[in-house]
């Protein structure tokens, strides 16, 4: 016999209950049910973002503040990571290329690798770890301490102030960070090339620019907008609708990183397929 069960999903800022009939024959596992309810809730959240983002008033000051915190404050971490990636990739690739007598292709190979794939993906993963967890934990702790409710009852729109600004900042700051990381990565590669050789900066960068095409750079930058959007969306969603209690804060931060990182790989896989179809 079917029994009635209910599940909390979220619409606007209010808890809304979805009552549905559960039949063991139709829904064999509650994991599926939870998954689809989560997808429904995330879809409502995403649609609300697009509704709020175009509706005035615009939170320009908060957007600037978040862009500073999300973008500028991430520069040192992204720079160090980018430099190390460029350096290590160069050092690791040299012996293989040397076997084929193609050491001269080292700058071009590293540049294409960094700009097409490694720069965007590694920077996005670092971004998901630093920014995603930060947003998830911040919003979840605001939720636990009723600060989000307080904003709502004081005639402010917490969704617009907290969610829209953070998603927009993440979407627009990540591409800039990726371009910066790519540049620093190439500097790291230059250092790596010169550990066992003597290549001038002019020659190194000439080889890089000769080997790169518009088709290498453009899709790589475009996909980072989607990476940033996905990381911001998941982090704000997990934080905004976290469970009450300190445990909820930890879970929100954790799932923001895990799901954000997973989304980076999924989007990357789709982007590679789309790019290869468009280029053929």
């Amino acid at each position: 016999m079917a029994k009635i069960v209910s599940q909390q999903v979220y619409s606007e800022n209010k808890q809304v209950e979805v009552i549905m009939e559960e039949s063991p024959e139709i829904v064999p596992d509650s994991i599926f049910k939870k998954f689809f309810l989560e997808v429904a809730s995330l879809t409502i959240f995403t649609l609300r973002f697009f509704k709020e983002v175009i509706k005035p008033p615009y939170e320009i000051n908060e957007l600037m503040k978040q862009s500073f915190l999300i973008g500028y404050k991430s520069l040192p971490l992204v720079a160090i990571t980018g430099f190390i990636i460029g350096l290590v990739l160069t050092i690791q690739s040299r012996p293989t290329l040397a076997k084929f007598g193609s050491e001269s292709l080292l700058p071009a190979m590293v540049a294409v690798s960094i700009i097409r794939e490694i720069g965007p993906v590694i920077t996005a993963l670092i971004f998901a770890g630093k920014v995603g967890s930060g947003i998830g934990a911040e919003l979840a702790s605001m939720n636990v301490t009723e600060q989000i409710d307080a904003m709502q009852v004081s005639d402010n729109n917490p969704f617009k102030y907290l969610v829209v600004t953070r998603i927009l900042s993440a979407t627009f700051m990540l591409p800039l960070l990726v371009i910066f990381a790519d540049g620093v990565g190439l500097m790291g590669s230059f250092v790596g090339v010169n550990i066992k050789g003597n290549v001038s900066a002019y020659l190194f960068f000439s080889q890089i620019f000769q080997s790169l095409e518009f088709g290498d750079l453009f899709p790589a930058v475009i996909k980072t907008f989607f990476f940033g959007f996905a990381i911001g969306l998941i982090a704000t969603y997990k934080g905004y609708y976290s469970n009450k209690g300190t445990e909820g804060v930890g879970k929100a931060a954790n799932s923001a990183v895990v799901l954000g990182s997973l989304m980076v790989f999924i989007i990357d896989m789709i982007a590679v397929q789309v790019t290869s179809v468009l280029q053929n």
Binding site: S141, T145, Q147, D155
Partner: peptide, 19 residues
């Protein structure tokens, strides 16, 4: 609804101050 709710103030148990 917003106009009506503006007339209502709420003091939260924890104070709900913006940290």
């Amino acid at each position: 609804l917003i106009e009506t709710q503006k007339k209502v103030g709420f003091l939260f148990q924890s104070g709900a101050l913006y940290d």
